[in-house]
Amino acid sequence: MPDSLLTDSWTLQDGISMTVLQNPLRTRILVTGVGKKFYVPPHWHAAHDEIHIVIKGRAIVTQDGVRQIVGPEDGACLTRRGVIHSLEGFPGEELILEETATAPEDTEQKIFFFRNMGAPGMLRSPLGIMQVLYYGDTYPKFPTGLRWLERLVIVALGGWVAPFFGYQLPDKRLRLDPSRFPRDKKD
């Protein structure tokens, strides 16, 4: 498996790979349709907006509970910060999906986020995942729908517990966005 920290293309799981593209800077997810279905669970971001573009195939994009099927003819799909969203492909179908943020520095951080998630063994490490979510401005949606609880769990597990047990980000260029936590508060 190529190391996501050293190359611009790596395998996330069987049949799903990610590539960093330039001019403009963005990530491309290639789903071959073989192996597990592509699925990104419901989550939200406190400090950045995302743009998804389906280059080939179809994806189901769910934003705040509204599901829509998006294809190449639909153009850019904008997800504003704070909107709970998920992405999924169709079983057995090829999908090429590109992702950026609305600000170039946020896109760079998203790439560092994906590099950390793609690091060998990371997806099998719950505390490692929590640490990447913490630094990557990503909060899972819980059934309770309580944003303060979703944020607290990520801060506690990713910001405090994971480092206590010696977890460190594989790619330390992923940094905590100070706009998520005011300076007069400590996380």
Rank of each mutant, 00 (worst) to 15 (best):
89 G>C: 03
54 V>Q: 11
161 V>Y: 06
83 V>M: 14
165 F>H: 01
116 N>Q: 07
120 P>T: 11
145 G>Y: 12
98 E>I: 01
118 G>Q: 04
158 G>H: 03
77 C>S: 14
111 I>P: 03
75 G>A: 06
165 F>V: 14
37 K>V: 15
83 V>I: 14
48 H>W: 12
82 G>A: 08
42 P>H: 11
63 Q>P: 01
109 Q>K: 08
150 E>L: 02
93 E>D: 12
82 G>T: 07
58 R>Y: 00
140 P>Q: 05
171 D>N: 15
68 Q>Y: 03
98 E>M: 04
81 R>T: 09
156 A>S: 13
47 A>C: 12
111 I>M: 02
44 W>C: 09
88 E>W: 00
166 G>Q: 07
157 L>I: 05
42 P>A: 13
55 I>G: 04
124 R>F: 13
49 D>Q: 05
87 L>I: 14
92 G>T: 06
88 E>T: 02
57 G>T: 00
124 R>I: 05
52 H>N: 14
57 G>F: 01
130 M>I: 01
101 A>M: 10
84 I>R: 13
72 P>M: 05
164 F>T: 14
123 L>M: 15
120 P>L: 12
49 D>E: 06
71 G>H: 02
74 D>C: 06
159 G>Y: 06
126 P>R: 10
170 P>D: 10
54 V>H: 11
90 F>N: 00
78 L>N: 09
43 H>E: 12
118 G>Y: 01
69 I>A: 07
166 G>Y: 09
107 T>K: 00
91 P>K: 04
62 T>N: 11
89 G>D: 01
111 I>K: 00
122 M>E: 07
149 L>Q: 14
61 V>E: 10
126 P>F: 12
140 P>M: 12
113 F>N: 09
123 L>S: 02
109 Q>C: 09
157 L>S: 06
82 G>P: 02
161 V>L: 15
167 Y>M: 00
88 E>D: 08
46 A>I: 10
71 G>R: 10
121 G>A: 07
125 S>F: 02
79 T>N: 11
133 L>G: 01
41 P>W: 08
166 G>C: 07
63 Q>C: 13
106 D>F: 05
66 V>I: 13
90 F>K: 00
84 I>W: 12
91 P>Y: 01
96 I>Q: 14
140 P>E: 11
127 L>P: 00
161 V>Q: 04
78 L>R: 09
